[in-house]
């Protein structure tokens, strides 16, 4: 077990993050999913030993984390390469930024030079090594941040939105590096990302964080909005992106609601068909990612939906980026998650 969060909880104003008991195994890849403001970054900070929970305990690599022992805590923190969502680049050259975390760990200068140059090359920003931050694009800056974290040889990498601002090539490089670290060194990787297609390329285990709670069952296609009763146990969901999405629910539901739809429950159709499925949403294929077991599609239908299909279906339907499709799913396939 790499991390064990036991009954941890933290509150800010009206928001409470209450992941309960969370176990993260060594050598696995985890992806935190959930809407903005659901508590993903806070949870990553607690896991990364950067934030002290108000209650409960955190175990790291079999040892209980004791914040009173500053020296031990520092040693434990240095086994984790943690990248904050708003990680700041320092006012020095690209090379010096990338070398910072190694320098403060007392790594030998010759070793630093070799490792930093290798990492900058691997992220295809070797030519920027001597540059100051002035004039770097957003994507280049993000690659420098990544280099600073990925150059570390730690058993754990925790990355908050590592693909933010990266172009397709940057996201591919990131996924390749993380996958190789996991396969070759057995590194534990925990991250959250809005770019699902790159995230799924690494076949991570999903952890859903919704309204500060961690779901035991990974949730996909999480939507937040309002509900309005339209029939017996039938509700209409709407937000600023979706107007009509029907779900059935046995209890009274009013006002704000968060829903999740299992990607396996969604059927893709090339034309609008009338079936027993109450929901038929027109959309466009945004991305197609092939994983070893299936094909993962992101379809934009107001909100982005993740859909899983087989490789045969992909070939038969001749789907490509930009193809118009319809998403079909029953009202009972939509789960209320809060």
């Amino acid at each position: 077990m790499m991390f064990l969060l036991d009954d941890t909880r933290i509150s800010y104003g009206n928001f409470t993050l209450d992941p309960g008991r969370l176990e993260l195994e060594k050598g696995r890849i985890y992806c935190l999913t959930g809407p903005n403001g659901s508590g993903k970054s806070t949870l990553l900070k607690i896991i990364g030993l950067q934030l002290k929970p108000s209650t409960g305990s955190v175990e790291f690599d079999g040892e209980k984390v004791n914040r009173a022992d500053a020296e031990k805590l520092l040693k434990q923190r240095r086994k984790i390469s943690f990248m904050l969502q708003d990680s700041r680049l320092f006012q020095r050259s690209v090379y010096d930024n990338a070398a910072y975390a190694l320098k403060i760990r007392g790594v030998l200068p010759a070793d630093i030079t070799k490792r930093v140059n290798e990492m900058l090359e691997r992220l295809e920003i070797g030519h920027l090594a001597k540059r100051s931050l002035q004039g770097l694009s957003g994507g280049e800056s993000q690659r420098v941040r990544l280099a600073r974290n990925l150059v570390l040889d730690t058993p754990v990498y925790i990355l908050d939105e590592p693909s933010a601002g990266l172009d397709t090539r940057g996201r591919e490089l990131l996924a390749d590096i993380l996958t190789s670290y996991n396969r070759e060194k057995g590194s534990t990787i925990i991250f959250c990302s809005h770019h699902k297609e790159e995230a799924y390329r690494m076949s991570p285990e999903l952890i859903a964080v919704i309204d500060g709670r961690v779901s035991s069952i990974p949730r996909e296609n999480v939507l937040s909005g309002s509900a309005e009763k339209t029939g017996d146990r039938l509700y209409r969901f709407f937000n600023d992106k979706i107007d009509h999405l029907y779900f059935s629910y046995d209890h009274e539901q009013k006002g704000k609601v968060s829903l999740a739809i299992d990607p396996d429950e969604i059927i893709l159709s090339l034309s609008e068909v009338h079936t027993s499925a109450r929901n038929c949403l027109p959309g466009t294929v945004q991305s197609i990612t092939e994983t070893p077991s299936s094909v993962q599609l992101t379809v934009s239908a107001g909100e982005d939906f993740t859909v899983l299909i087989t490789k045969n279906s992909l070939e038969e339907m001749k789907l490509a980026k930009g193809s118009p499709v319809y998403l079909l799913f029953k009202a009972t396939a939509v789960k209320v998650v809060n």
Binding site: L74, D86, F90
Partner: peptide, 19 residues
Amino acid sequence: SVRETASSLGADKKQQLMI
């Protein structure tokens, strides 16, 4: 932002102040 970033990268208190 500076001290949080430095801490996340493994800096001790003194190193955080230096940066």
